[in-house]
Amino acid sequence: MSFPLLQATSLSCERDDRILFTGVDLAVEAGSLLRVEGPNGAGKTTLLRILAGLHAGYEGEILWCGEPIRRAREHFLRNLLYIGHRPGIKPLLTPLENLGALLARNPGMTRDQQEEALEAVSLLPFAHIPCHHLSAGQQRRVALARLYLSDEPLWILDEAFTAIDRAGVESLERLLEKRMAAGGAIILTTHHRLSIQGAQSLDLQIHAGEALSV
């Protein structure tokens, strides 16, 4: 029997005396893309952080390949690439240094490959300029360059397209499609309109909870 890569059953999360969402079920198969939707404050980021194992305040169960993620933690992390809305870029380091540090988790990437990834996000001319001299969109592209070198089957991308220009969004969409074709699974949030075939969506608004009566 084969399991979905990531599966969550009856997830609920409470924050600041408010139920953010309740009864969320989701399953992400290899080769699928799940888009989490909802208005600001619906708990999209929190849901993604819960799925990545960064947020512990939830109820429900999350399974990685059929095993609870608490038990399969190392295996799960080996196969997960998460990019949060804070991109994890050190402003004093150059894009190349930042990328090298972010990629050190699964070593074996050559410098050529890193430069190739920077070229894919059109940052190669800026490879040796400290990141705090770059624009917000360019800083975000540094983090996104990781996607081009990733061998992790599961991506969790929070607001992946924020501050990215139209051409950048388009090439990212192509990348995501290629990933799905290669058997990667993607969970993302974005306020952009996506033109990706076969994207599923999960609306958090229908799972919104009531304010807790105190």
């Binding site: 890569l5 290899a30 390949c65 190392e74 295996h75 080996r78 196969n79 988790r105 699964n106 070593p107 490959q113 190739e116 990834a117 894919a120 081009y148 070198l149 061998d151 992790e152 089957p153 990348l175 290629k178 990933r179 290669a182 058997g183 990667g184």
Partner: peptide, 19 residues
């Protein structure tokens, strides 16, 4: 992009990573 074209079918990796 060539880094992408080399990509084999993605499956969960079992081996542990060097520290």
């Amino acid at each position: 992009m060539s880094a992408m074209q080399k990509l084999p079918r993605l499956t969960p990796k079992q081996e542990s990573v060097p520290v």
